[in-house]
Amino acid sequence: MAEVDVKKIARGDFTWRSLPLAAMIKVPTSLEYKTSDWRIEKPEIDQSKCIKCLLCWIYCPDMSIKRLDEGRVEVDYDFCKGCGICAEVCPTKAIKMVEE
């Protein structure tokens, strides 16, 4: 089944002929659906306090803590919904939730 042009579909630019058969769709496609605008507060990481425990990374429900080399982490603000779990689980309080 063909990959679909998600943006076109989101614009309403499709017909019954152009939609994939029985909605069988090549995955993933939700990377086109940014959830950042759900957020009221955003997490900010104070890298000087980070002990690279990766707890924020393992618990993030939105795969929005990116794990970089050697256990360093950063926030992917495209998908972060601002739930604050990362700040809550951080043992050194290196993550703060600040208003957008």
């Binding site: 499709f14 029985a22 069988m24 769709i25 995955v27």
Partner: peptide, 21 residues
């Protein structure tokens, strides 16, 4: 070539899938 089968379709596309059938 992973596909999703049996997804959810909202009113904006559901009718097109039925027409297709």
């Amino acid at each position: 070539n992973p596909l999703a089968y049996g997804v959810m379709a909202l009113p904006d596309t559901y009718m097109e899938f039925k027409r297709q059938f």
